[in-house]
Design a protein around this nucleic acid. Sequence first.
DNA 1: GTAGCTTGTTGAGCGTTGCTCAGCAAGCCG
DNA 2: CGGCTTGCTGAGCAACGCTCAACAAGCTAC
Lengths: 200, 200
Amino acid sequence: MTGSSRPGHPRLRRTAGDRRAQLVQIGLELLPTTPVQELTIDEVARRAGISRSLLFHYFSTKREYYTAVTRAAADLLLEHLLPAPGTPAEQQVPGMLDRYVGWVETFPESHLAFVRGAGGGDPWVSEVYEETRGRLVEVALTTLDLPDDTLRRQLVLAWFAFTEDLVGSWVQEPTMTREELLALLRDVLDRLTTDDGRGR
Amino acid sequence: MTGSSRPGHPRLRRTAGDRRAQLVQIGLELLPTTPVQELTIDEVARRAGISRSLLFHYFSTKREYYTAVTRAAADLLLEHLLPAPGTPAEQQVPGMLDRYVGWVETFPESHLAFVRGAGGGDPWVSEVYEETRGRLVEVALTTLDLPDDTLRRQLVLAWFAFTEDLVGSWVQEPTMTREELLALLRDVLDRLTTDDGRGR
DNA sequence: GTAGCTTGTTGAGCGTTGCTCAGCAAGCCG
DNA sequence: CGGCTTGCTGAGCAACGCTCAACAAGCTAC
């Protein structure tokens, strides 16, 4: 029944790489509307016009599949955020922040799905999420010319959580101008990192 | 097979209230080790010594069940955090912060499960989580004698995200003293709320 | 061209899990 | 004892993740 998607076409045979890419792509398209872990093999296979079995040929487990989808989403985000090579150091963090807000403005549900899905309990997915956050912290600390010690990592990671939450709710209900938001976020980060983590 | 849990006992018949409470209790005990949504009816019923069907007699849907469990967990947390009546206003927020850190120190996995499980995609669970955060913000704003406008709510909620993240990682790897942590958190909150949300 | 190999692809089917439903039986009342 | 309420069960269905044996598309070799 799932077999030949169109009666006219005898059967379409793709290369392994193409098929994998197609399946991940379908996952990405479904991501905004469905929590990653709730993607059903049936649905994905149906959209791809293939049988369930074939999906298991490429991803030996459902978890392996949606982890791949999550990683693809994370890579898209990173690619969008990371500063273009040659950007002056002092512009890198502001630029990333600005692009981050833009990203959330453009794909609010998609972003929510990624951030939320991260916590969804599955260690594999969380790992991808943590890895992404880790790489962003690294870039931030490097370009801010700050030592990469445990304390500062913790503070910047917590600031990420702050940023994700605030930007998320700000997009839903803009309580200040975009510039004020960016200034506030940068200000909090500055104070956290230059204070050596201690108040007063 | 699941029926009479002990061969000796003919069959145990409980009142509706007792049974519900028992089932929710079992869910709470499983919560630290299992993401809420991954609780299986089979497992819970087995632990309660009843058939799967009975669980559906009390909770018409699995989601209804684990939402009840989540709500119970949230209530436990709130009960622990909310200040005792008669506490002087200026002590309420510090007290809650202190008890929050204590809670995370005592039940690290349990806390992680709650915070993480919150985002897990399910709107019902997220709602319980948001509701809990909302009530905490309300208490905070009231006792800090601050106006309860949208901007301030957003800032305090984002500060919660900051706090959850930082306390969570601090428990795993204490990069400062407990007092420094508390002071830092209070300081960030103070600056956010007294600055009217704008830096400088 | 056809034989043969590789490999993309399928269908039938199994175990688990969420959920339904008809009916049993425990305990109380008359 | 008869009858009522209601806690409770077992069989069974549909959906889903996953397996496995086998088919067939497209390439190369002769």
